[in-house]
Design a protein around this nucleic acid. Structure first.
Lengths: 197, 197
DNA sequence: ATTAGAATATATTACTTCGATATATTGTGC
DNA sequence: GCACAATATATCGAAGTAATATATTCTAAT
């Protein structure tokens, strides 16, 4: 899914500026889909060019000027078309899980620190989601939003529980291997039995 | 985390070609981090240029030639440096959750189809993870791999359970809002803008 | 038997997206 | 008073994606 489609989707609920779209994606939508300013602003410009959104410049007194975008009928049809594609698997980039997979390369204190921060992040997100600051308009939207919010909290709880119960696997067993590759016991030339081909 | 770091990490376990790295990221590592060929091949070339990996071209009889990369000492230190950064939140791009959030814009049959496919994907991944085709070398690696594998299965189970228990929220309540914006006076079952799948 | 497609393997290209930075103003904490 | 966070848009190089091209071998169907 392109950032353009994501913008159309968010604008289908309410008019918004690029900045507001970004804040939504950082806040209540953070477990759904992310996008950067560098993707959002050009996407909105392109959507306007193609007549899928309109733009109203609002001069504000106490804030910088805003460009508030609104979905057009054409944009609404385009959104429906894009949403008609059956979605494939989620795309995940988890630096945390990479670190956990190579936990044995780093000192246990570092792993513990990373885990503490992860738990903190997750508890924060869970708190935000459970507060439930959603602005649903229709009954249909309310049910959809509730499904997605519930999904987020279910996954976060499972992750929190798992990490708390199993952190010893990566904190305790760490550093059995020397990070420099120099083996404490014998010399390393051929790490016995590689095969795999 | 750059794809370069990801390559260094995978090579720290065993020598591999670009193709093999990609297959790992599609298979047992699919819940950890993704990367495309277009990122992996240039990354490996760059790492070789910088002396972080070495490359051995293997002419194969029954397969196309391979370029097998190995981590150097310098590369191992670089990996440790990169892994020393405390990781931030996971970056997620879930077309599925976007669709669920806007489920009310599409016919219930489409949502049901998307959910069926999602359940199928998740059951497949869960099966693969539970088979546990890992090739850990040291005890430290084994514990790390077990932690990450367990994390994946815990999240997948939570997701499966949640979707099965709550799919009615998006399948039943769908289409209370007409996607065209026109009033749904008589026929609520006829979608206006459903395109190809 | 042959033809089509999947798997193995690398590489390139256009396009998209990220991450960092620049700019400018107002609000907030120390 | 001064640094910092928040509001707001925009740009640009670097990085990454998705699709495609090339070439070989194995497998399955016609």
């Amino acid at each position: 899914m392109h950032v353009k489609t994501l913008c159309l989707a968010i604008l289908s609920m309410d008019d918004a500026s690029g900045y507001e779209i970004k804040k939504l994606l950082e806040g209540p939508f953070s477990h759904i889909h992310e996008a950067s300013f560098g993707a959002i602003y050009p996407a909105l410009a392109r959507l306007q060019e193609d007549g899928l959104v309109t733009c109203e410049e609002r001069t504000q007194e106490k804030r910088p000027d805003k460009k508030v975008y609104s979905l057009t009928q054409k944009g609404r049809f385009e959104l429906i078309d894009e949403l008609s594609i059956i979605p494939g698997p989620d795309r995940i980039r988890s630096d945390f899980l990479v670190l956990m997979l190579y936990a044995h390369l780093l000192p246990p204190s570092h792993i513990a620190k990373a885990i503490e921060k992860r738990l903190e992040i997750y508890r924060g997100l869970l708190g935000e989601l459970e507060k439930g600051e959603h602005v649903p308009v229709s009954l249909g939207e309310q049910a959809s939003a509730e499904f997605v919010r519930g999904y987020g909290t279910a996954i976060l709880r499972a992750a929190l529980d798992y990490i708390e119960d199993n952190r010893h696997l990566v904190e305790g067993a760490a550093f059995l291997t020397n990070p420099t590759g120099a083996k404490p016991t014998d010399s390393e030339e051929h790490p016995a039995g590689v095969a795999a081909e």
